[in-house]
């Protein structure tokens, strides 16, 4: 759906996005992750041609995305970038009518979009009086009304309470089930962890990882935890060859493959230390994410 090649954006001499090769497969929910300021918004703006790339190319739906071609593509792309749009002095209904006029949409498309985000009961209220969650949902309705093939959402859960976040998550799943490709960014992994099928992790404008969840887990080996009768001595012994530290009464060893794990066990047995248990730490996506970002000195 989206392919970029060597995409970059430089402001002055500061590279905000650098050498980005995005691959967003059709029909997926692409979770675009990275700390604040890592270049997610700029990348998404380049995908929409709101910002002109300094280098590289963008292809969306097989066609090049540039200022000169953006009009053909934007009709099929719904987007919500940074803060939600909408005019505060107009009501929800008036805002939707505005989009309808601009994009030549049918009444049915508008009604459907409003129903999807569950705003039907709030359309007569001025947007100024909306809560942030309602504004966010109205923004989504404006993006969805054109029945896009691709939906680009920048931090749609930012500033929402847990219920609002859950609502957006539910919505994204529904939209994706209807066949729309969704690209959604967040600086909080937990927020899109469960919805995304493909992940892209950005740090300092560069792609740190891109692939499925499983591939991401495979990238980093969870710590080995060893429970013994003499944790102090065990930690000291293993520290000669491995990264080892005491975690409560448990020895925590990092970066061990299966062979090294066997070596550690036989060393401890040889030293007459009783082993009560050896296991891999359970690893959350959050840990992997932190590993990746720390590894690159972020």
């Amino acid at each position: 759906m989206i392919i970029t090649h060597d995409l970059g954006k430089t402001y002055g001499n500061r590279a905000v996005v650098d050498g980005l090769d995005l691959r967003v497969p059709e029909g997926c929910v692409y979770g675009f992750l990275g700390p604040n300021g890592s270049g997610k918004s700029t990348t998404m703006k380049m995908l929409l041609s709101l910002v002109r790339p300094t280098s590289g190319e963008i292809h969306i739906m097989g066609r090049p995305m540039r200022r000169s071609t953006r009009r053909e593509l934007l009709g099929h792309i719904g987007s919500l970038i940074e803060s939600p749009p909408a005019y505060g002095h107009l009501t929800g209904r008036e805002n939707m009518r505005l989009v309808q006029r601009l994009l030549d949409l049918t009444d049915n498309q508008v009604t459907q979009a409003v129903r999807t985000v569950r705003l039907r009961d709030h359309l007569e209220k001025k947007v100024r009086d909306y809560s942030l969650g309602m504004k966010q949902r109205l923004g989504l309705a404006m993006a969805l009304a054109r029945e896009p093939r691709l939906l680009i959402l920048d931090e749609p859960t930012n500033g929402l309470d847990p219920a609002g976040i859950e609502e957006i998550r539910r919505l994204l799943t529904k939209v994706a089930d209807d066949g729309t490709t969704v690209m959604v960014s967040s600086h909080l992994l937990g927020e899109i962890d469960r919805t995304a099928t493909v992940l892209g992790i950005l740090g300092n404008g560069r792609m740190l990882f891109q692939g499925t969840r499983d591939e991401l887990f495979a990238r980093s080996v969870p710590d080995v935890l060893v429970d013994t009768s003499e944790p102090q001595r065990a930690a000291a012994l293993t520290a000669r060859w491995h990264t080892s530290r005491l975690d409560g009464a448990t020895v925590r060893l990092s970066g061990l493959d299966d062979k090294a794990t066997a070596g550690v066990v036989s060393l401890l047995v040889h030293e007459d230390i009783e082993i009560h248990g050896v296991r891999r730490d359970s690893q959350s996506l959050e840990d992997v994410f932190m590993d990746l970002t720390e590894e690159r000195g972020l």
Partner: peptide, 11 residues
């Protein structure tokens, strides 16, 4: 808000 983005994000 995001009105500039929305304005220019349309065909």
């Amino acid at each position: 808000g995001g009105n500039w983005n929305a304005l220019m994000g349309r065909p």
